[in-house]
């Protein structure tokens, strides 16, 4: 089994309108102009892995209220095993309004979800028994209000006790604290703050410095998003990963496809950090160049492998 953890999932609702004009009343008659799907880092990776043929993929996290049950039903459609702690507060709803002419993209990101302390303790208990037969654990995404920043640290501590390897994609204080438990692979998420370990990252040298600092603080390997590239840190070695002839059509789902590609490679070939990243890059490239947000099969990844260039850097 593969386990993904999504503590702050959301129902994503996309509305496509002819034009998004404030104060105007719009009617939507075509069902194709409304898309509702389960969202949240970790969950999309779980769906990708399921599509790649893994029979047992589990998603652990919180869901809340009646909308939480609806969310779970949507996830079940993908044959993902859900392991959710039900909370009193309703789950988040993210709203995207896409205007067609002129093209506009308006995003209302809902950060109102709160969980109670007893829910957190229940999640930790459920996590411990839920990962017993998991080979890999991927923990990613933000944490809802009510959850302490040491949550990822606690979950990784359990993984270490049970001998499970962790791939962590996190940001801010939750990431800072989790490093002490020495997760196998760390991918910092810093799109909103532009900060890693509380330090600004602007120039290339900042990225290299922070990648190394993440290793010093406990990460065994680091993957650092650098514009459209990735910087890979393994011991003293630093690599750059770049796509060739890259045509961006869609960001949504690229990071999740990257994670799924990485897992898929490691699961089938053993842990080769550089080659797993090449495969992961090819998976992300497939999503970035298409409108779909999910991976469908390995062939579409393998077709891109030749367009992923990895170079060792002298820095």
């Amino acid at each position: 089994m593969i386990t993904t953890v999504t503590l702050n999932p959301a129902i994503d609702r996309e509305y496509f309108v002819s034009a998004n004009i404030p104060k105007e009343h719009r009617f939507i008659y075509d069902e194709q102009d409304i898309r509702v799907y389960p969202g949240g880092k970790g969950l999309l990776t779980a769906i990708d892995l399921k599509n790649l043929g893994y029979p047992d993929v589990q998603n652990i996290g919180f869901v809340g209220g009646k909308q939480g049950l609806f969310f779970e039903k949507m996830v079940q459609e993908y044959k993902i095993t859900t392991n959710y702690v039900y909370t009193d507060n309703e789950i988040r709803n993210n709203v995207f309004i896409i205007g067609k002419d002129p093209v506009t993209y308006t995003h209302y990101n809902d950060y109102t979800y709160k969980v109670d302390r007893e829910d957190v303790e229940e999640l930790v208990k459920r996590f411990r028994r839920g990962i017993v037969d998991s080979d890999f654990i991927i923990i990613s995404g933000s944490i809802p209000e009510g959850v302490d920043f040491n949550i990822y640290q606690r979950l990784i501590e359990i993984c270490n006790e049970l001998g499970k390897e962790v791939y962590l994609q996190a940001s801010g204080e939750a990431l800072n604290l989790a490093l002490s438990e020495k997760p196998k692979v760390v991918v910092p998420y810093f799109k909103h703050t532009r900060k890693i370990l509380d330090e600004k990252v602007v120039e290339f040298a900042d990225y290299v410095r922070m990648g190394r600092k993440l290793l010093e603080r406990g990460a065994q390997y680091v993957i650092l998003p650098y514009h459209c590239d990735r910087l890979l840190f393994a011991g003293d070695r630093v690599y750059s990963l770049s796509p060739v002839d890259f045509c961006l059509k869609n960001w949504l789902g690229t990071g999740d496809a990257y994670n799924a590609g990485f897992f898929d490679y490691v699961y089938r070939n053993g842990f080769d950090f550089v080659e797993a990243n090449r495969y992961a890059g090819a998976a992300a490239l497939n999503i970035a160049e298409h409108k779909t947000i999910f991976l469908n099969n390995r062939k579409e990844i393998e077709d891109n492998l030749g367009r992923i260039i990895i170079k060792e850097l002298e820095v």
Binding site: Q58, L69, E72, Q76, K79, I80, T81, T82, N83, Y84, Y86, T87, D88, E122, K125, R126, R129, G130
Partner: peptide
């Protein structure tokens, strides 16, 4: 089948079980 691991343990207390039953329907 419905793939869900919602469950309780032998040493959980009834109050918590009732809450899980209510929330999970």
């Amino acid at each position: 089948m419905m793939r869900t691991l919602v469950s309780v343990c032998e040493d959980d207390i009834l109050e918590d079980v009732i809450k899980v039953m209510y929330k999970s329907e």
